[in-house]
Design a binder for these strands. Structure first.
Lengths: 343, 343
DNA sequence: TGCTGGGGTTGGATCGATCAAGTGAGGGGA
DNA sequence: TCCCCTCACTTGATCGATCCAACCCCAGCA
């Protein structure tokens, strides 16, 4: 086939083309691809050769139509907050894409809408564009999980169903309390006695979880926590103000923060007062963001095992979509601590 | 329909269901969705009502099969470098997802492979899983663009085809020289005379482009550049070493860097020597990463207009896939400067 | 010889949409 | 009155894979 402009790109080979070349029927080629054990060895070989010769790859749309599965996983991404250290999603997305590939899935991104947290889900679901969803923002009062459950849409959550113990969907989460316990204990081991906490407002389950680890660690050594905690918005400015107040009123020698963003606020306060992080005052953040890794003198931070989270999420997804039985509704993983100059 | 477990989820309504309810033929429903102007007003209204009543949404797989288009755009993501400030992709991905949505496309992520830069493309292409690709890493010697062109695969590059002026594919890029010119001029306006450059090795076209802006700005004011430039790896450690050497040998009062990662290296050196960024020595980075935004005292940085890049990329894509004529092979955008405490 | 059973293979139907061609009513010009 | 054309919609075929039921062939057994 050719026209005046030169060769016309050939249409991709179909299963029928392969069948003809190999001298077998379409069904036999399909079996060669999907159930190779059904074929005799020599037939399989002949079909394989034809597939290679033509460069055949099954047409996704046709397969999806017939099998009612797209092998796509939907992930909503919300605009990253400017001015925060929150690069958590970036790392998670990478891990998820990699883990999905190994399970034969691809990740489809769709944009979030601040007004309506359900926007996007409905359309993708009804048009059967994705097989399942990954839900990441499971904060208090987020209707996604409940809505998806009511629609019987398959999904896995990264984050516990804090406010709904009735929830039956699979989830994977990281033990925040264990993380700040780890951070606090690390500081205690370095000789600190007055360790302050800067976290999020009380209505954040995640914030309260992380805070619990800090107070648990202090109490286990018989140390007081009163007057050493502050709960604010997750911004650098808030962290800065909170740390300034705490330094004046409680004279802590170390800070544990619910996020790297807040920890950066502490570094701001220290810089303003001519104090050196790691020498004069110790600081530990949460999430091990890029910021923590490159800021002088390096910010010690709790690192979430996002690679493992992604693997577990995909595993749960396979259980949901395939026949293998579920292992259980939830998986809780333990974070580690990346120690740097700030402590 | 029900079984012992309760209600069975109803199969999604099809175009035929809508047609029956509205009392028209399938094709009419199809036209109502895709070419509403072909219908008489009252018929259109009746079909719309039926669509709403059933909650109909066209089956993607069936549509893809027939139209030979998936309305998916493939984007390869490579693992983010740990220990750098490079969160560029994260911002770009968000912008791209948003811009794609407005054009009726979704973004499909697939994992990169360090060994083989072509892995992934071939399979998605042959199985007609995506309509086009966005290629982002157009560094020297990367075979992706040439390979995709030889396959006649539609794609748009974020980054100029530096090493191949013959390339005919559409691309969008940001003027790196204009960016460092902007940064350097900003420092000159603040009274700095000895402004050093820390960039990447010579084999990086992007690095040389950015460097050209710095030397251009200095020369336009009749200032010398000799002895003030250093070319190293893109790591914090390299930036630290390079700035230490430059401070000792050339006594610059300001640094312009090819990346925020290198700029963070400079901040390390300053901290070690008890110097204060912005007061004793000025520093400007490149990319306006989250790190630049939160590090004390704030890192002035060249900001790439990634939102606009995404819009242009999608526009080029529409030109490539649809009938509207191309505006031209390349689009070059101008960055801005986010001024913070470090200058 | 004739019947049975099962591995391997076959053709036809099907998934749900769009494309291409066709139908019938109504209007205008000769 | 007849013909042609347009408008608004309908009908049958098709995209490329998988599912389904039937089929063939040959070994095993009576």
């Amino acid at each position: 086939m050719s026209n005046v402009l030169g060769r016309v790109p050939a249409a991709p080979p179909t299963l029928a083309d392969v069948a003809e070349l190999a001298g077998v029927s379409r069904q036999t080629v399909s079996n060669a691809v999907n159930n190779p054990d059904l074929l005799r060895e020599d037939t399989l070989l002949r079909v394989q050769e034809a597939i290679d010769a033509l460069g055949y790859s099954p047409n996704r749309a046709a397969r999806n139509l017939r099998t009612r599965a797209s092998h796509l996983i939907g992930l909503k991404i919300s605009p990253a907050q400017e001015g925060t250290a929150d690069a958590l999603m970036d790392r998670f997305v990478h891990s998820l894409v990699e883990a999905s590939r190994e399970a034969g899935y691809h990740v489809l991104l769709f944009p979030g809408d601040h007004e309506d947290p359900l926007a996007g889900y409905d359309d993708l679901l009804r048009s059967t564009a994705v097989d399942a969803f990954i839900v990441t923002d499971t904060y208090l009062g987020n209707p996604q999980a409940a809505w998806l459950e009511s629609r019987r849409a398959p999904f896995v959550a990264f984050g516990r169903p804090w406010d709904n113990p009735e929830a039956r969907h699979p989830w994977v989460d990281v033990d925040g309390a264990a993380g700040s316990d780890l951070a606090t204990t690390h500081l205690l081991d370095r000789g600190h006695q007055r360790i302050a906490w800067i976290g999020w407002r009380k209505d954040s389950f995640i914030g309260e979880d992380r805070r619990a680890g800090w107070s648990r660690a202090l109490r286990s050594r018989g140390l007081p926590t009163t007057g050493l905690a502050s709960r604010v918005e997750d911004t650098v400015a808030s962290g800065r103000e909170a740390s300034a107040v705490l330094l004046d009123e409680a004279q802590p020698t170390a800070f544990v923060c619910a996020s790297d963003t807040l920890a950066m606020g502490v570094l701001h306060t220290l810089a303003e007062r001519g104090l050196v992080a790691g020498r004069d005052v110790a600081v530990v953040g949460f999430d091990d963001s890029q910021v923590a890794q490159v800021v002088p003198p390096g910010l010690t931070s709790v690192r979430q095992p996002l690679e493992e989270v992604a693997v577990q999420v995909v595993k749960a997804l396979e259980g949901l979509l395939g026949h293998p039985p579920l292992v259980g509704p939830g998986v809780l993983l333990t974070p580690s601590l990346a120690v740097r100059g700030s402590s």
